[in-house]
Design a protein around this nucleic acid. Structure first.
Length: 885
DNA sequence: ACCGCCGGGTGCC
DNA sequence: ACCGCCGGGTGCC
């Protein structure tokens, strides 16, 4: 049951139907998807979709460090044997030199190909003999341009440039010398007049090497952002309404994005850098020409900032632009008997399905957004291709309107030769979400994505240029823009000119980007107005004083805990007792909220006199308890809040993807990043983030209900708020779901209409809770009890203009993300956030640590990622600060 | 003549 | 290739 994450269900009274070819299975709750409750290692591999964490691809950095290359010099040579090959070139056209070690006549053979990859001829054998060693040992990259004589019948000249790392220069010059060749040095003083080197085709040569100005990543990034600052282009500011089936009204900038995407998909334009010249098509970068019209990508890159609605816009595109600019033909649900109409086939034979590939972490967000944005009256077939029982039948996939899958599923399917249904389907369109995931060209995910078949190809990303221009290549390559699908042409015409600061390089990249991407930031202006005007957001801290009784309990637990922890410090066993320490801190944090929260957290410490297995078991159990309380713990690898926490044998906790990455990198002897103990996949224990409160527990909470200082403070604030503004809605947020439950009682008693949203709820209930809360109808709930981590990035709770954060999180970013659920697009009011903090408590110390983290994050661009030991030391210092040691 | 020279055959690697 | 090179034919002036 746990492993059942491939949805074969049809929800009739819902707006989205998830169904397989035969209506065989029904499963009522998509909430299953969110919840993993695996604990034994035997379950582990089979049901977890292990492929999502064990990357099949090789590691980054295997590619040649072309970034470091300098120009050694140039050499004129000749291409021979033209009459035996079909490849033709133009004067000044770039050519590729390719080693052909298996040539039966000469093992030193070097082929000469044109931009299209067609062979033009061979490098003359004496020269080839000199080049072979250099090329095979990757001492230099040799690039060619045919300066003239392109129409010759038997031989033609080729101007070669040698590029490589500084330290290889002498070896290369020496090897050439031994064969009687000498490079002409690139002349610094030739400046822009270095025409004889470059011909007209070599933008890469026209740069005097040492005069090159290398742009830093940040400079580049700002260059790009500048490019999009003020959109004037008409094709990006036209607006378009979504089809009827789009259930959410689009905002102006989303209508612009939709119009642009539709126009891209229906475009007849030539791709960038191509011109029609009499009866052939000409590439102005490489000077390559061909009769056949080069295909333009019917798509591009949607690179809007987070929060502008890329997902909604994409859903709108799918529903609005099917064929010939007509909307996707979906069934309108008019009666109860819509089953038959759903099965109706579309007579058209063309591809129908859109494939969306996304990281696992946003899979649920897509499902949420389908639910949210597809109009209730329309039936759209959506299939989630994920999990161990995913379909192997391509026809199941091609019949859908939308197929959703993850990069790792895609890569795993692709790896199993000839058995990838995803690669057998002709898609109408492919959308890669978080497209920068495929920036490593050698990774299996990238290769698998590149080999999917569709004319319409889209990349969604919030960070188009993450590290360098280099990262763009995979995306461009996915878009199948000629001639950039071949890395050499991308490198010679764009990447090198840009990174070396060659004149025109950046301009060229900009014009490429401009023609295929749409990027808006939150501050982008259209016609002088910012596209997003978010109301103000204020964060207030309200201090709470514990009652005498609460303080007594708190102090006694603190005293005991402090003694134990200082004991661990003096023994040097802080790391082995990490779970114990988190347990102490958790109890103190819980006591700040409500004394009742501690009921199921044992206070005993794991004694060292136990045999190791017992100790380990207790520690793991303790860690599970900490996590299941809802506490937002951090992963020491990524420094973010935990996603899919797993506990190691040494009782430390990490995100599952993070720890698998460590294991993969350090295999076969991986060590826990935290304590350097042995780390084995089969010892990892998965842990659900939130446990549902069992009914007996809940009864207990109801029967013996008592209040707490924090609850009193909250109720006071709520009642005051209601008096001042009866319709104002607010979110009451806590990490502890039990705490949320404890608040239900006084809310009821004071007559508040409230709803609740936490991670344990089934999808349907969640959707209902959200809809209810967002409704502006009289009598709709004014309070939502919200667990800190509930919902994905897509969660929209803009009806609320007040937030009460009941307990601080370790990670300020987690809090911010939560606030953004109401302080986001669509918010009409100023947002006021109140953080309740207990005076003289662990909470106050947490605030201090939060502030430090904020400062660190603000300067994040300058500082490098801290090492594991640094993380460890920071954690230890934090523990000391938290418990006043 | 174990040369030179002539002119036809021929041609990437 | 309107080249170079190869190898067979040839041979005083």
């Amino acid at each position: 049951m746990h492993g059942q994450r491939c949805f074969h269900l049809l929800v009739c009274n819902n707006n989205v139907g998830y169904w397989a070819h035969a209506f065989t299975k029904q499963e009522p709750g998509l909430g299953k998807f969110r919840k993993y409750s695996l604990s034994s290692s035997s379950d582990f591999y089979s049901s977890l979709g292990l492929e999502d964490f064990l990357s099949v691809g090789d590691t980054y950095g295997t590619e040649e460090d072309t970034d470091m290359a300098i120009l050694y010099g140039t050499l004129r040579g000749s291409v021979v044997g033209l009459r035996y090959y079909t490849g033709i070139v133009n004067n000044n056209e770039m050519v590729a030199l390719q080693r052909e070690p298996n040539n039966p006549y000469d093992k030193n053979a070097v082929k000469v190909n044109n931009v299209n990859g067609d062979q033009v001829g061979h490098i003359k054998k004496e020269l080839a003999a000199a080049l072979a060693g250099i090329m095979d040992n990757k001492l230099a990259v040799v690039e060619g341009v045919v300066p003239y004589g392109a129409k010759n019948a038997f031989t033609m000249p080729v101007q070669m440039s040698f590029w490589g790392r500084e330290e290889n220069k002498e070896i290369v010059l020496d090897q050439l010398k031994r064969h009687g060749f000498k490079l002409a040095l690139p002349l610094k003083e030739c400046g822009f007049g270095s025409k004889w080197i470059s011909g007209r085709a070599g933008p890469s040569y026209s740069a005097p090497v040492h005069a090159a100005v290398q742009l830093t990543t940040n400079q580049l990034k700002s260059e790009f952002d500048k490019l999009f600052e003020d959109l004037k282009e008409d094709d990006k500011t036209c607006e378009m309404e979504g089809a009827e089936a789009v259930g959410t009204p689009l905002l102006p900038h989303q209508k612009q994005a939709l119009a642009w995407m539709v126009s891209r998909e229906n475009s007849n334009d030539l791709p960038p850098f191509w011109e029609k010249r009499s009866n052939f098509y000409y590439n102005i970068l490489t000077n390559f020409a061909e009769k056949q019209r080069p295909e333009n990508v019917l798509g591009g890159i949607l690179a809007d900032d987070m929060g502008l609605g890329k997902t909604l816009t994409t859903i709108a595109l799918i529903l609005t632009n099917f064929q010939d600019g007509k909307p996707l033909p979906v069934e309108k649900i008019t009666s109860d008997k819509f089953y038959e109409s759903v099965k109706k086939k579309y007579s058209d034979d063309g591809p129908r399905a859109t494939l969306i590939v996304c990281p696992l972490s946003v899979l649920s967000s897509w499902i949420d957004q389908f639910e949210q944005h597809i109009h209730q009256d329309f039936h759209v077939n959506i299939y989630v291709h994920y999990g161990s029982d995913r379909s192997k039948d391509p026809s199941v996939l091609s019949e859908q309107d939308i197929v959703l899958t993850t990069y790792n599923t895609l890569a795993t399917d692709y790896g199993i030769r000839g058995d990838s249904p995803l690669h057998k389907v002709k898609w109408l369109r492919i959308v890669l979400d978080e497209g920068h995931t495929i920036r490593n060209p050698n990774a299996q995910q990238t290769k698998a994505a590149l080999n999917l078949e569709a004319h319409r190809r889209w990349v969604l990303t919030g960070t188009p240029i993450q590290n360098s221009v280099k990262d763009l290549w995979s995306l461009i390559s996915f878009l199948k823009l000629k001639p950039f699908t071949d890395r050499e042409w991308w490198h010679r015409t764009i990447q090198r000119p840009v990174t070396m600061g060659a004149p025109g390089g950046l301009g060229r990249l900009q014009s490429l980007i401009r023609s295929i991407t749409l990027r808006r930031t939150k501050t982008t202006k259209v016609k002088g107005k910012p596209i997003l005007e978010l109301p103000e957001r204020r964060v207030l801290i309200q201090y709470v004083t514990l009652t005498e009784e609460e303080r007594q309990i708190y102090q006694s637990v603190k005293k005991e805990g402090k003694a134990a922890i200082s004991g661990f410090f003096s023994e040097g066993t802080v790391l082995t007792h990490y779970a114990d320490i988190l347990g102490v801190l958790l109890r103190l944090r819980q006591l700040c909220c409500h004394p009742r929260l501690c009921i199921n957290t044992s206070s005993s410490f794991s004694a060292d006199n136990k045999i190791p297995e017992e100790l380990h078991e207790t520690l793991v159990r303790k860690m599970k308890l900490v996590l299941s309380s809802g506490s937002d713990e951090e992963c020491a690898v990524c420094l973010e809040s935990l996603t899919l926490p797993v506990i190691t044998q040494c009782a430390h906790v990490f995100c599952k993807p993070c720890i698998f990455e460590v294991i993969r990198r350090e295999q076969p002897n991986a060590k826990c990043p935290f304590c350097r103990n042995e780390l084995r996949v089969e010892h990892l224990v998965e842990c659900p983030l939130e446990e549902e409160i069992d009914s007996s527990n809940r009864k207990k909470l109801d029967q013996e209900w008592i209040s707490s200082s924090k609850i009193n403070a909250l109720m006071h604030a709520l009642i005051e708020l209601r008096r001042d503004n009866p319709t104002a809605k607010c979110l009451v947020v806590s990490q502890f779901t039990t705490f949320l439950s404890l608040m239900e009682n006084p809310l009821k008693e004071s007559g508040f209409a409230f709803t609740r949203l936490d991670g344990s709820m089934a999808q349907k209930k969640r959707v209902e809770a959200i809809r209810c809360f967002q409704s502006s109808q009289a009598g709709s709930p004014t309070v939502m009890l919200l667990s800190l981590k509930a919902g994905g990035v897509g969660l929209n709770l803009t009806a609320a203009s007040r937030v009460f954060l009941m307990d601080p999180a370790w990670n300020p970013a987690a809090e911010d993300q939560c606030f953004d659920r109401c302080h986001r697009l669509g918010q009409k009011h100023n947002v006021v956030i109140t953080k309740f903090i207990v005076k003289n408590s662990v909470e106050e110390n947490m605030l201090k640590i939060q502030n430090k983290k904020r400062e660190l994050a603000a300067g994040a661009f300058a500082t490098k990622k801290p090492s594991a030991t640094e993380v460890k030391q920071t954690k230890i210092n934090e523990i000391k600060a938290l418990i006043d040691l």
